[in-house]
Nucleic acid binder design. Structure first.
Lengths: 197, 197
DNA sequence: AGCATAAATAATAA
DNA sequence: TTATTATTTATGCT
């Protein structure tokens, strides 16, 4: 039951009762409001910035949650980070969470300065978890494919069948791999940018 | 088949042949290189910043692509934006695309200054497309869906339409259910990924 | 208080 | 490019 939504309704005739607990993210056109010593405007500003800074570091909500769980006392789920960023929580909760996030983020940025690797270590995830491939070409398979490609970029049907068999992949998948590989080469073959070696 | 990945491999004993054409985004510790009048370092910097600025504006790759398609001559797909951000393209393409994106992004930021509403109008999408409400399937419906899934986890468009009709759910909702179901299955049955030689 | 998963977004084989 | 998969975010529910 989010009050956020109800407030966007044009019918503002409804009086705000004690039962209605406002959330931080609630849209308001009031000037910076301060309730119970909580500067809502400041929290909104921070939440917005937090997201941008998180994305700048290339971190997911899950990563932040897990890292915080590892370092701080209480546990923080991905949902919790999500809800903070959207401010779909009570001002009290937000107020409590803000300094924790602020401190952690500053530290993360500090490590990032020293290199991506340090950040990942700080975050605690695997150093460079690669995105899983869409289909199951293993790095090993790609290595083999590349070595075949180097020898001959245009294998015959027979050869494709054999390679597919060796790698235990579908023949069609292998055929298409060669197509795409040739395509890539064609796109770039006019320049060898880095002249590596 | 990205060459990017192969370069991250620790096995640097393999000589890089003429067949291996580097792409712009390729990791390098060389100083700013410039080939054929293209400042690669500058492009890398821009691509990185582009993503951050895009996210700061709260825009998706899809939105950028669609907006560009509407304003400029050629069409730009979500994939195209994705590939630019990852620099999984040729230097030539990147060089060509950079000023287009730069100009567009600056304009978008300009409109954003005048208010979120103006940005959305500039982008061309609906003013504030709300996220679809999370649908909850009844246990009965899930049972039926599961039985269909057991028989065939990848139903055709026609079949999806029929299932949706039978269960009286939105077709799109049913389609996504199958996507997510396949995903879940895949995640839970992580059997010997490396078995595939 | 956070899990399970629906929806949205990004990446990529075809 | 397009259609689909892989990944991330958001939320209904208890």
């Amino acid at each position: 039951p989010s009050i956020l939504k109800s407030t966007t309704s044009p019918s503002s005739s409804l009086p705000i009762t004690c039962g209605d607990i406002a959330k931080v993210g609630q849209l308001t056109h009031q000037p910076a409001s301060s309730e119970e010593g909580i500067n809502l405007e400041e929290i909104r500003e921070f939440a917005k910035n937090f997201k941008i800074r998180r994305l700048s570091l290339g971190l997911t909500q899950t990563q932040v949650g897990q890292a915080l769980t590892a370092t701080e006392g209480p546990a923080y789920s991905q949902s919790a980070i999500c809800r903070f960023e959207k401010l779909d929580i009570t001002p009290k909760s937000a107020q409590k969470l803000k300094p924790v996030l602020e401190k952690w983020l500053a530290e993360a940025e500090h490590w990032n300065q020293k290199g991506q690797q340090n950040l990942m270590e700080f975050v605690g995830g695997e150093p460079s978890k690669k995105r899983k491939r869409r289909t199951s070409f293993t790095p090993q398979a790609i290595e083999v494919l590349n070595s075949y490609f180097e020898k001959n970029s245009l294998p015959t049907g027979q050869e494709i069948t054999e390679i597919a068999k060796e790698l235990n992949y579908d023949r069609e998948v292998v055929r298409v791999w060669f197509c795409n590989r040739r395509q890539t080469l064609k796109n770039t073959s006019k320049i060898n940018i880095f002249q590596v070696q």
